[in-house]
Simulated scan of single mutants.
Amino acid sequence: MTELHVTTLGDGRQDVYWCHGIFGQGKNFTRVAKDLLASGPDAYRCILVDLPNHGRSPWTRDFSYPDMAEALAETVRTTSADRPVHLLGHSMGGKVVMRTVLDNPDLARSLTVVDMAPVDSRLTRLAPLVDAMKSIDLDALTTRREAEDQMRQEVPSATIRQFLLQNLRHDTGENERWYWQMNLDLLGNDLSDVGAWPPVTTTWDGPVLWITAEQSDYVGPDHSQAIHELFPQVRRIRVKNSGHWVHSDQPAVFVQVLATFLSHCQADSASR
């Protein structure tokens, strides 16, 4: 697979890779990544990743967590060389970074998972979003506002509409057209694979921060065993007054928790 597209912020000594959820892009983390950099200007370099089939990264023929993990690992090795690496993933990106360290145990110094568990997740809730995006007549579209109006009934939340429409692009060149930048057909048709968790036989003993949302059901009490079996050195934090997009709902708390965890990881590494 071609190397994934990344956006780099800061020039600190340790690299923090940020991996988004389904229908997202690396740039979704821009605000909290900049806030993390402000907490330790010389400490980090933030690398915002567009995962396969999203943003400006390559498309694939199939959806596969092992393949996505391999692509991320290849990107890390190319981009970070011998620099210390920390991986962070939200939702689908959480499964990608989990699988990445399980398959490549020496790649990263720490792992942060945001509101996702290493279990099969039923993502039927996303089907109406896919239907709403596919219902837009791209050939007849003239403005982005028209697209939003067409989605309004299926997607009543303005925030979610804007999140989805970040993927809608307008080519104003000779062949003027509207198009979805992400691989909507693959992602929409493979929601069961996006929600799946392929079985693994390894564990990862590095430090893990698990951030969950108070108002989300993606990580429940019945998932604790699966989490601790794969990641025995896990620290769990539940953020109040937050939904699935914890970093958007409570950015200040999110960054504070993350900065404290990464600082402890640095101290532990320096003392060895």
Rank of each mutant, 00 (worst) to 15 (best):
T202D: 08
W245I: 05
S192R: 12
T203W: 09
R169W: 02
N241P: 08
V208Q: 01
H170Q: 15
V253M: 10
D185Q: 09
D190V: 05
H170I: 11
P198M: 07
D190K: 12
Q256I: 01
A158C: 01
F254I: 06
R236E: 13
G195I: 00
L258I: 00
T203R: 10
V194P: 07
F163D: 06
T201M: 08
D171K: 11
S224N: 09
P199G: 09
L187P: 00
F254S: 10
Q162R: 05
N167Q: 06
D222E: 15
S248C: 11
A252N: 13
F254T: 07
D205M: 11
T212C: 03
L165R: 03
N241V: 09
D185T: 12
V200K: 05
V234Y: 03
L230I: 11
D171G: 06
L168T: 00
P232D: 10
T159Y: 13
G220N: 13
V219N: 09
A252Q: 15
F163H: 03
F254K: 07
H223P: 01
F163P: 03
V200W: 07
G173K: 05
F231H: 08
F231R: 07
R177Q: 09
D193N: 14
D190E: 15
I160V: 14
L258T: 00
Q181S: 10
F254V: 06
